[in-house]
Design a protein around this nucleic acid. Structure first.
Length: 213
DNA sequence: GACCAGGCACATC
DNA sequence: GATGTGCATGGT
């Protein structure tokens, strides 16, 4: 095992235990959440998801039928609601154009075929694509986010100017290509980050602060 | 009231 | 190719 990626994982897992990610029950709920959480607090996303559920819109066909303006109103609490409504629509159009509206069919694609297709959808960038691949379709790909970069650069494990792909390669070269491991690892990183910033605002301290310092 | 939150696309130089 | 900006709500 190169560097200390496994060690960081072990520290986090021993402290927090399994995170049971993604916080969502169905594939479409996971995908919608992945788009809505772009640069947005998860609590706000939850409010939007509840609106969609309560109004019976959290299905692929319902998202196809609903007018983009109505959709935007439902997801208002998640912020950027106009652009995100369009992004959800873009994804749904893609599912119908390529897979006849069938996520199961979509899931049969290998991730090296599916990833570029997702990235071609306007509004789906690298992190969103990888979140969908890993958490909705169980494909073994490591999801990188701003927390991941912050932890590694502050440990001087990677250069400051490393890009998304470089960072992803770091983990995927160092770890077994296991969807379960990648799932848990990313979730733990988000968990420790939230935990840290909350404690920081409370003025408390923790041994895990070394992960951010 | 400023600042941040599990990004992304697009404009401009 | 690098850097800047709009998108927007809700919690601290």
């Amino acid at each position: 095992m190169s560097k200390s990626y496994q060690k960081i994982y072990d520290i986090l897992y021993d402290h927090y235990g399994p995170q049971h990610w993604w916080p969502g029950d169905t594939q479409i709920e996971i995908i919608v959440g992945a788009i809505l959480t772009q640069n947005t607090n998860w609590k706000n996303v939850e409010k939007a998801i509840i609106n969609l559920k309560d109004n019976g819109v959290l299905t692929v066909p319902a998202l196809k039928s609903i007018a983009v303006d109505s959709l935007a109103e439902f997801i208002r609490p998640a912020g950027y609601f106009n652009v995100k409504a369009k992004r959800l629509k873009n994804f749904i159009h893609f599912v119908y154009a390529e897979y006849d509206g069938d996520l199961k069919m979509m899931g049969k694609e290998t991730f090296d075929v599916l990833r570029p297709k997702l990235l071609a959808v306007n509004g789906i960038g690298q992190e969103t694509a990888d979140s969908i691949l890993l958490y909705a379709f169980d494909k073994p790909i490591f999801v990188v986010d701003t927390y991941t970069k912050r932890i590694l650069t502050r440990h001087h494990l990677v250069p400051e100017d490393i890009d998304y792909h470089g960072l992803q390669e770091e983990f995927m070269a160092a770890l077994e290509p296991d969807a379960k491991l990648f799932n848990e690892y990313h979730a733990l990183i988000v968990r420790v980050a939230k935990d840290f910033y909350q404690r920081k605002s409370n003025g408390a301290d923790s041994p895990l602060n070394v992960l951010f310092d």
